[in-house]
């Protein structure tokens, strides 16, 4: 996030506002049965699940305390969630203060490619219509 400080803070406030509004909507309204959720474009076009399919439903369950149900919807998102929140908070603080406020280990290229492979593998496996792979699809 380069740019002038004022613009940077405005962008940050905008992002937090959108994220906060999304969280409130996801908490209040169950995805799949409400006007607030567009269907996944990839899923409606191909019929296959994308890596993020079930994330909104899972987050709704998680916000209501149903951790098992959340993992049943999208396990990858639930595993990634704490790491993503921490990493994003660290990057935002760094862009605000110009230095690391939260310690964040450097992600080596090797680790980065491993994460990329994990996402692609999850994408493929959750579309195999067989147990135990169906456990990775929203259910």
């Amino acid at each position: 996030m380069n740019g002038k400080p004022a613009r940077r803070i405005f962008l940050l406030a905008l992002m937090l506002a959108v994220a906060g509004a999304a969280l409130v909507v996801i908490y209040l309204f169950a995805p799949g049965s409400s006007i607030f959720y567009p269907p996944c474009v990839f899923h409606s076009v191909t019929g296959y699940h994308c890596p993020g399919c079930g994330a909104a439903r899972g987050l709704h369950k998680l916000l209501h305390g149903d951790i098992r149900g959340a993992f049943a919807m999208n396990a990858l998102t639930m595993i990634a969630l704490p790491f993503l929140l921490y990493a994003m908070a660290a990057e935002i603080l760094k862009s605000l203060y110009g230095r690391r406020a939260l310690p964040l280990p450097e992600i080596s290229a090797r680790a980065g490619w491993f994460i990329f492979a994990a996402v692609m593998l999850f994408w493929i496996l959750r579309n195999i219509p067989m147990r135990p792979f169906t456990l990775l699809a929203p259910h």
């Binding site: 890596p51 790491f83 993503l84 994003m88 990057e91 992600i107 994460i115 996402v119």
Partner: peptide, 11 residues
């Protein structure tokens, strides 16, 4: 490092 944002956008 935009990796966290990229994963968030993907999911």
């Amino acid at each position: 490092n935009y990796l966290p944002w990229a994963i968030a956008v993907t999911l």
